[in-house]
Each structure stands twice: as C-alpha cells, then as structure tokens.
Write a protein that binds this DNA or RNA. Structure first.
Length: 734
DNA sequence: AGTCCCCCCATTTTT
DNA sequence: TGGGGGGACT
C-alpha cells in the first residue's frame, strides 16, 4: 500500500513525527509550523501502516471546530469515513462517557447539562437560600470558586477552610450547589470532566476496558489542558506509554481559566520514555516577524525552548506608530488598511488585534466613517441568546419535567400572571418536600394554597407544557420547535418588542427551527458500540445536549470581504497577511491586572507572541500616548513588549506629513491643540519626569508658551500639580 | 409588570 | 464612558 502521500511535502521533523513508531511523543509545534497537518497525517499513518483500527484511536481537542476539522481532514486523507474513531472535545467525550455509564457515574439517566448561565442563576439562588448577603458574596465569585476547584479535581470534602471565612462560606455554597445539582440531575461543564475522571477511579473494570480499547491517544493544544483534563487522560493512558500530545508552551494563554502550562512542561517527566519533537520551521511569516517573536519570547524563563525560522526572506520591517490618542490610532490603522486595499489586496486579509474588547469601539467607529467593511469576532453566540435560551428551556421542560432551572426560567415567560411570590412558594414547597418544582406546582394546583387566580395561572402553564408534550409524539424535532415557539407565546411576545431587537429575536427563533432541521445527531453516538451499552436517546435530548455543548455556528460569512477585528485571545490559531497589534501600552497590554505577578506577566508576553506570529507579511504595532479608558484619560508608556523586540527590526513611523490633529474632548478646558510635544522642550505628554521636591510623575497636560508655559503633572505620591515650566526643577526620565 | 434611575464596575473565553 | 443589576416607583 502506498502511503508516501502522507509524508509528501513534509520537512524532516514533520516526517519524523508522522511516521513515528508506537510510543509517547510530545510534539512541540511552533506557530505556523504545520501542526494540524502533522496531527492528522499521523493518525492516518497509524491506520494505514500500523494497522491500527480507527476504533482504537481517541483524539481530543478543545473546540468543536477543531474536532470537526480534524475528523474531516482524516477522512479526506483516508478516503473513507472513520466511524468508530473518537474525535471530540474533552467535554464532548466526557459527556459521551457519562451518557453511556450514567449508573457508574452515579447520575440519573436523564441528567442535563447546564451551561455557565444556568450555573450562575442556580448559585445566585443558593446564596439567597443560605441567607447570605449577596453584596458580600457575589455569585460570580462563588461560581469562580466552585469551578476552579472542580478544575483542580477538588470536591468540598477535599478542601480545607483553615477557619478562613472566605473559604468556609464558599464551601457552604459549593456544598449546597452540589446537592442541588445532584438532586436535579444537573451537570455543569467542570462537573462533566470531574465525573469522567471519577468514573475511571471508581470503576477499575470500566477503565481497563477503555484502556484496552484506546491503544492510541492524541491530544491537541496540550498546553491548554487543566489539571483534571490531564489527570483524566493520564489515567486513561495507563502505563502503555502510547500517547501523542501536540502543543506549544509559548502559546499558553489560558492560565486564567485553569490551563496548566506545567502539564506540557512536565510531560517528559510523567512519560519518561517519551520523545520530544520540535517543529520549528515556520511556513507563515517573514524572517523579520519571526525574529521579533523569538526575541520577545526569550524574555520568558522556564520555556521548553524553541526558535522559529523560515527559509523565506526577511520581508518588510515591522512598523511602529506612536499615536497621539486612541482616535488617532484608529485613524492610522484605517488609513493603512485603505492603502492596502488600494494596492489590490482584500480587506479580509487584514486583522486588527487588541487586548480587550472595549478597544474595538473606537476602531469600529473609524471603519464605519471610512466605509470600510469590518467584522468583529466574539460577542454572543447563537445558543446563548435570550430568546433561544427561553425556547430551549421549554423544550427541556417538555423532555424533563424535573428540570427546575428551565421551569423557573419560563414559568412566567412570556408573562402569564405568575408572580415572584407564586414562584417562591413553589420553590420552597419543592425544597421542603424534596420534589421537583413541576411536582410542587401540581400539588399546589390541586390544593387550596394560594389564590384561585394564581392557581389557575399555574394550571394554564402546566397544561401548556403537557399539551406540547403530547405534540412531541406526532411531531419530529422541527415540528416541536415550531410548536414551542408559537404555543408558548414567545413569538408573539418578541413580535411586540419595540425596535429592531424584536425583529432580530424573531429571526433567531426562525433560525432555531432551521438549526433543528439541519441537526444531525452524532452518527456514531449509539451505533455499533456494544461495549457502551448506550441507551437510546431521543432526538430532542440529543438536540438539547448539542445546544449546550456547541456554541452554534459562527455567523461569519467567509465570502464577505471585511477587515477582521478581534482580541488577541480569539486570534490564536488564525493567520493574516496584514496584522495590526493595537494598544501596545503598559497597563493595557500587558494589562494592569497582570503586571504584578511574574507568571501572569509571562502569560501576557506569550499573548503578545501569539499576536506577532499571526502576521504573514506585514506587521504594525501601534500605541497611543493618551487613551480614554473607562471614561478617564490615561497616559501610558509604550508597552515593555515593544522594547523587547530587537530594535533593528522595527521601523518607527514619524507623524511627519500626516498632521495628526487630536480631537479635544467636548467640554475640555484650554483650547490649544495638543501636538503631543510640550513646546520648546523635550517633554511630551505622558512622559515620566522627576521633580526635585515632588518626586516622580507623569506629564498630563500643558498650556501657554515660552515663559508662561505651564505643565500639569500627576505625581505618584503628591497628586496632580500645575508647574511653571520655566522654574520647575524637572528631569525627564525616559 | 414594566420602567426609570442610580450605583457600581471595569481583561482575556470555551465547553 | 457605558452596561448591567437592583431597588423604587407608577
């Protein structure tokens, strides 16, 4: 059998990786080094040459998109569908295991996935029921406490409070939350992973079965695994030493959500027979861009080590633009993109990256004004929209009457005269008798509690759900969607909503129907897997799980030629011929909140590294000497990261012929147009100075000329002061 | 039940 | 600057 096509066009390191014999490997794959290709080809290689059955392969990724892409590329390489192969996200695979082995996992068969929003609502309710001060114990923080401990594999019983009130209170919340979840058969995202891990630990036979089945394990984006994910895969790997992980420690940017860069750093210790293969040849960027990236990232300590190179030429210099303010920065970027387009390039080849979402606004305005099409990544995803969540909650309630979270969500949505008091009563009755809210509501209706009017309203709601459920028997998923949207009154409700918003919501509801129409139950979920004894699941339940696990299609239209705008985080994995890294100011990037601890600063640096390595041909760095952040003017110094890029690679763009007239804020005093330079001196706005008496500070404003010139300085210790320039004993610091 | 107003807050995001 | 949440008012 000729398998040479699996190696064609690969470099030595890639070939080594693809054709590696059985064993454990850490593929350190630099940005743009052909990682995905190596991963897919090596799976194809295993199947083609080593006679490994697809049935024995487990490949794990982080996003559904990556999983889908991997599967389709492997099928393309093999020229056939690979049904038995497990390719999916950690959560998707955990979910599948729990569905199949719900008993062993100590879950009810019809357990439900709750997403972050459901989780937050539930925790809020719990905090209330524990009679804690909601101001003092914000639900978000409690959710953070719960999730981060779950990510570490810690149950309440594993956590010690050492008499600390903060920990103690959160533990109480955690415990109550766990109870509520267990009672309602609800599983949050972190819980899925934790349960899947416990499934291994508590069921040695089951574990053994899967260990034998999956002879080959592969993990993508290994640097992003958290403790529980790594623990899960490690247990599954057992001691057969046959695991291939791909990742890049220099692109680990998700530490703040539990990812452990240590996992990749200690892989070689955990798997002592493993081999490390470095993919350092880059096929994306120019030499200059790579040198910049390398120069920057060497500032980090404890790296596994890697230096990107290319056999292409150096290419153009990196451009650095010092904007006067954020508006000027946006204008500059727009102007460059206009040039780019005039030279015959597409808008969609250009990307503007920023550290925080708030920065997109000014950019957006500039693009709007220049009438350049743009697209902003991120924002709310389809299944997260309010109207969709409401419709789904109805569907969940139809499927599972005891889904309390859904019950509460829709009992009075749209309003049908069931007020807070009624809901509270139902809730406490349910809690008191350890029954579902649905059951409690039924009991109330049959009793003489509450007014007849309230009982009647509840009865109508109960009847509505029952009636729709009857409909499920004659209708398929699409039919049910239609019924839900109409009969619940959601459609009517949103139709009445004023403005475009209501219209958009209606369209989304229609979109939900088409999502149901195109919904394709995972083909091999319950097929031919005797070992899983998978119970049949209704199409409705599958659809609901799908909605919880998948964000919904990205609404992007790839045919549209528009400038791409996104945060640095969302840019990971993408590439663009022309890239702008904007807002390169200390305090913004690296972000103020990440500058204290060295570890976090390093993550910011890696984020910058990710940004730089997105660029294929041209890279622009921009910063603003003054920027409005959260309503107040700030004066930041240029990002330290810029200074960590070898200066010979960087070309500073002068303000020269383009007159950058800064726009004064309405209502600002002092009319003089600020040029950025304080007349007749080498002082600039934003510059740090030292005053012999007041200490160090930053120049924030100035007025007057010559002998009359005064400057305003924000001193670190003394606050803001106006000083006569002619007399003030100042020393510029930068 | 819906609207208004005030206060508070403020990275990054996938499942 | 602005968005979200909570409380008070109509």
């Amino acid at each position: 059998m000729d398998v040479s096509y699996l190696l064609d066009g690969l470099n030595d390191a890639q070939r080594t990786a693809v054709s590696a014999p059985s064993g454990s490997y850490l593929i350190l794959a630099g940005a743009g080094s052909g990682k995905t290709r190596v991963l897919t080809n090596s799976i194809a290689w295993l199947i083609k040459t080593e006679n490994v059955s697809p049935y024995s392969v487990l490949a794990v990724t982080f996003t559904n998109k990556a999983a889908a892409e991997m599967r389709s590329r492997i099928e393309l390489l093999l020229g056939m569908p690979v049904r038995g192969m497990w390719v999916g996200t950690f959560h998707g695979i955990a979910h599948r295991l729990l569905r199949a082995h719900w008993k062993d996992a100590n879950l009810p068969q019809n357990f439900q996935i709750i997403d972050s929003d459901d989780q937050l609502r539930l925790v809020k309710r719990i905090i209330k029921s524990l009679e804690l001060d909601e101001k003092k114990w914000p639900a978000r923080q409690a959710v953070g406490f719960i999730n981060s401990h779950k990510d570490e594999g810690l149950r309440p019983k594993n956590i010690e409070d050492y008499g600390d009130l903060y920990t103690k209170t959160h533990l109480d919340i955690y415990r109550a939350y766990e109870e509520a979840c267990q009672r309602g058969g609800m599983v949050d995202f972190a819980e899925m992973l934790l349960r899947a891990h416990e499934l291994w630990l508590n069921n040695p036979l089951l574990l053994k079965h899967y260990q034998e089945r999956f002879s080959h394990l592969l993990v993508d984006e290994f640097q992003d695994t958290n403790s529980i994910q790594y623990a899960w895969i490690r247990v599954l790997a057992g001691d057969k030493d046959n695991i291939l992980v791909v990742g890049d420690d220099d692109q680990s940017i998700y530490g703040w959500r539990g990812a452990k860069i240590e996992n990749i750093q200690k892989f070689s210790t955990d798997f002592p027979n493993s081999e490390m293969i470095r993919l350092e040849q880059n096929y994306r960027s120019t030499g200059t861009i790579l040198k910049a990236a390398n120069g920057l990232i060497t500032q980090n300590v404890g790296r596994l080590g890697k230096e990107l190179w290319t056999d292409k030429g150096d290419g153009d210099s990196i451009n650095l633009y010092a904007a006067f303010n954020e508006i000027d920065e946006a204008r500059y970027i727009v102007a460059r993109i206009k040039d780019w387009n005039t030279q015959g390039n597409n808008f969609k080849e250009a990307a503007v990256l920023y550290r925080s979402n708030a920065q997109s606004r000014v950019l957006e305005e500039a693009f709007l004004r220049a009438q350049i099409p743009y697209r902003i990544y991120g924002g709310q995803r389809f299944f997260d929209r309010l109207e969709i969540r409401n419709a789904l909650a109805y569907m969940r309630l139809i499927s599972h009457r005891d889904a309390d979270a859904s019950f509460e969500r829709v009992i009075n949505m749209p309003t049908r005269g069931i007020g807070d008091k009624s809901v509270q009563m139902i809730r406490s009755l349910a809690r008191g008798n350890d029954i579902s809210m649905w059951q409690a509501a039924r009991n109330i209706v049959a009793s003489t509690a509450m007014t007849a009017r309230a009982r009647n309203a509840i009865q109508i709601f109960l009847d509505l759900i029952e009636a729709m459920d009857d409909g499920t028997k004659e209708n398929d998923l699409v039919g049910l969607c239609e019924i839900v949207i109409k009969q619940t009154g959601l459609k009517e409700y949103y139709a009445k909503e004023k403005g475009e918003k209501g219209q958009a919501r209606l369209e989304n509801l229609e979109e939900l129907i088409s999502a149901a129409r195109t919904f394709d139950p995972e083909p091999d979920f319950s097929a031919d897997e005797a070992d899983e004894k998978a119970e049949p699941i209704t199409a409705l339940d599958e659809f609901l799980s799908h909605a919880a696990l998948e964000a919904g299609e990205s609404q992007s239209d790839p045919n549209q030629d528009s400038v791409q705008m996104m945060t640095l985080h969302s840019a990971k994995g993408l590439e663009f011929p022309l890239v702008f890294l904007s807002g390169l100011e200390d305090g913004l990037f690296p972000h103020q909140m990440s500058t204290e601890e060295p570890g976090r600063l390093e993550e910011e640096r890696r984020l910058c590294y990710v940004g730089i390595t997105r660029a294929m041909k041209e890279l622009y760095l921009t910063y603003a000497e003054t920027r409005r952040i959260n309503g107040s003017e700030t004066y930041n110094r240029i990002s330290r990261f810029v200074n960590e890029i070898p200066s010979e690679l960087v070309q500073e763009v002068r303000m020269s012929n383009i007159v950058t007239k800064p726009v004064r804020q309405v209502g600002a005093r002092r009319s003089k147009v600020l040029s950025g330079d304080v007349d007749g001196t080498d002082l600039k706005l934003g510059q740090r100075i030292k005053h012999s008496k007041f200490g160090e500070g930053v120049v924030v404003n100035y007025e007057g000329q010559g002998k009359q010139a005064r400057i305003q300085v924000n001193f670190d210790d003394e606050g803001s002061k106006w000083l006569m320039l002619a007399y003030a004993p100042l020393l510029p610091l930068d």
